[in-house]
């Protein structure tokens, strides 16, 4: 018995120029906010962009984008993601609604494979993937199944976050996966610990996103989100997307 879905995944993604995985070993660092804002910002520049929420047990990008509950994928030789705020947007929430999705590892893998196999993305310049925290099933499955992924790592200024993220980066480096760089989110001072530590690891420190109280009140309002410090910080990330991608750790 063979699972046929695996064979079609890279064909489904073939028309996507770049797949950016927004990831962090630690939760609560702002992955979803950065993934959604980056996607919106790239779309605002005129790129064709998809946003794929793979945080099945804690999806939140639909809330950030203010996606209406009536929005659903269209059935056409698979599932065509609806366009929301200029983004082709896919999430498990279309199928589970507001209900909890208590999924164990094998279920996470199966749901991820199903969505990768049946989602009919159009031709995209960028697919931004919002990941669950950690280096568990979703990360390992993406690495196993998708050829052309690049990682954007998010941390906070806290060493608690960075120590976990160091483990994630060690794993990605061991697997020789491309890392665009590290973003230090919600920064409230001028401490140089994270930039120094990141560079010491041989990785690109993209920059800091200063803590901005307006971010919380811009949830559900993409235009307002893009006007926050977080929105303006996307310029540095977009610049890094155009730069050399590191896959070496010291």
């Amino acid at each position: 018995m063979l699972d046929p879905r695996i064979s079609i995944i890279n064909e489904r993604l073939a028309k996507i120029k770049r797949i950016i995985v927004v990831s962090s070993g630690k939760g609560g660092v702002g992955k979803s906010m950065i993934a959604a804002t980056l996607a919106l910002s790239l779309a605002g520049d005129g790129y064709k962009v998809g946003l794929f929420d793979l945080d099945f047990t804690g999806p939140s990008t639909h809330i950030i984008l203010g996606v209406s509950k009536s929005v659903q994928p269209r059935e056409e030789k698979g599932l065509v993601p609806p366009v929301v705020n200029g983004l082709e947007f896919m999430s498990l929430v279309y199928f589970v609604g507001d209900n909890p999705a208590p999924l164990r590892g094998a279920d996470v893998s199966n749901a991820l494979i199903e969505l990768l196999a049946v989602t009919q993305w159009g031709a995209l310049d960028y697919l931004i993937i919002d990941m669950p925290p950690g280096i568990g099933d979703a990360v390992l499955d993406l690495v196993r199944l998708v050829k052309q992924i690049e990682f954007l790592i998010i941390t906070t200024p806290s060493l608690l976050a960075f120590e976990v993220i160091k483990k994630q980066m060690a794993l990605l480096c061991e697997l020789k996966l491309p890392i665009i760089g590290v973003v230090e989110n919600m920064k409230m001072d001028k401490a140089q610990v994270i930039p120094q530590e990141t560079r010491r690891l041989g990785l690109n420190y993209i920059g800091a996103v200063a803590f901005d109280q307006r971010v919380e009140s811009s949830i559900g309002n993409p235009a307002k989100l893009l006007s926050t410090t977080l929105g303006h910080s996307m310029n540095e990330i977009k610049k890094a997307l155009g730069g050399k991608v590191s896959c070496r750790c010291r």
């Binding site: 046929p4 064979s7 079609i8 064909e11």
Partner: peptide, 17 residues
């Protein structure tokens, strides 16, 4: 048709085998 996507996967997989 969602089945269409699954049929494509079946054929891609069978072709590989």
């Amino acid at each position: 048709m969602h089945e269409w996507a699954l049929a494509e996967a079946v054929l891609a997989s069978a072709r590989q085998i």
